[in-house]
Each structure stands twice: as C-alpha cells, then as structure tokens.
Amino acid sequence: MGFSTLFKSTIFTLKMYRLYWPYLLSISIMMPITYLIIILAISQGDLEALRVALTGYITITGFNILLYMLATLIANTFEEQVLESYALLPVSFWEIVISQILAQALIGIIPLAVGLVVLKCISSNINIPLLITGLTLEFAIYTPLAILLGISVRNRIRLDPLLVFLMMFIVIATPSYYRLLYIGDIYKTLLLINPLTHVVLVLRSAVGVYEGFPLVFSIIYSILFSTLLCVLVLYKLRGGAFTVLEKR
C-alpha cells in the first residue's frame, strides 16, 4: 500500500463532493453549526452544561461524518457495478477503502475543530491525552461500523433510512446531550452497553466532567468493541471484493 496512491485516491474521492456539495455542506457544516448554536443557547452560560453538550456534539458530529457519510460512500462503492468499475483502477481494494476513510476524516476536521476550539475556550483545564484517546476511540468505533454497514447493505438508498434510524437511536441511547450521572439505574445499565456511551464518558473526563463510572473500564470496553468490529470487517472482506459481490 503506497502513500502516494493513498494520497491521490483520497484527493480523487474528495473531488467527488464537488457535485454533491450541498450534501457535504449540510452534513459537515450546517448540521454541526446548528447543533452548536442550540447547545450555546440552551446552556445559558452554564459552563459545565456547555462542556457536557459539546462532548455530545463531538460524538454526534462524528456520527454524521464518520458513520453516515462514510457508510453511504462505502455502500455506493460496493454496489456491484461500481465495484466492477473500480476493478479497472490500478489501486488495491484496501487502498480504495482507506482513501475513503481518509477523505471522510479530512471532511470531519472542520466541524471537529470548531467544537474543540469552543471546548478549549470554556474549559480551564483539558486533559489532552484523554481527549485524544476519546477522539481515537470514536474514530475506531465509527469507522469499522460504517464499513460493516456499507458492505452489508451495498445500496445507498436502502442504507439511508437505516442510518436515519440509527442516528435517532444513538441520540437517545447515548448520553450525548444529558448526564449519565442523573439517570435511573436500569436506564444507565442499558446505556452502558452502548460503546458510544463510553466514548462520551472518556471525552467528558478529559474536560473535567465526571459521570461516576470507572474510566479504565470505558476505555477497555470501547477498545474491545472496536476490535470486534474490525474483526467482523476483516472476516467479511477476507477474500477481497469477491466475498462481498458473491452475496447476491
């Protein structure tokens, strides 16, 4: 796998968005900014509430860009005829997938940076290593999940409602915009099954908001979940593209 090939393929993927710029603009800029404005308005100057909401913002923005957009891109790539047209290109199957991940990661930098800058402005003390750990775990969960969804559905029109449903589910089933600390035990237990809850907990710990749950457990749980997803992806693609195409 060559860096030059990856670089060229990433640029090639990014150029695709010139035709779908309203889609790109709405998901990667308009939607995060809308969230941000609502967060700022609702917190009414309460810095802790703002920090709680901003960590949720980072998680949900990650969903939009790393899961929603990437899964759609992968599903499109893995449509039979599209994948066939990629067979012409002198790039390996993994180079195609990785270049698409890199393209999405680059797209995500702007809204993520906006969130982080606001977070920095309102937080007196940020634990940078923990923040990086949280962001890495977010990336490590969303990316294989997006690939898994994309290659399983292989049709962006069929995938779209599934992603919308997943989005609604994650907003409710992840304590993105509320505190885990103040909810009932049964609901809390259910939320802790969701690995994204643990990502939120790590991010919150980084900005000094604690949810009363052991951080080490959250990190280990997230790593294990991400590893499981990666293993599933590798299993699904064990023989290359044909293992996906075979399933008619």
Binding site: L19, S85, A87, L88, S92, G240
Partner: peptide
C-alpha cells in the same frame, strides 16, 4: 488480485463512470 490489476485492463459492461 494485485498482480491481475497490473496485468489486466478491463472495461465493464455498463457505462458507469465517475459523474463528478
């Protein structure tokens, strides 16, 4: 696959190209 991609050039049946 890596070797085949180097040695073989292929055109698929459907005229799907890169729209953007």
């Amino acid at each position: 696959q890596d070797y085949i991609k180097k040695k073989v050039a292929y055109t698929p049946q459907l005229p799907l190209t890169y729209p953007a």
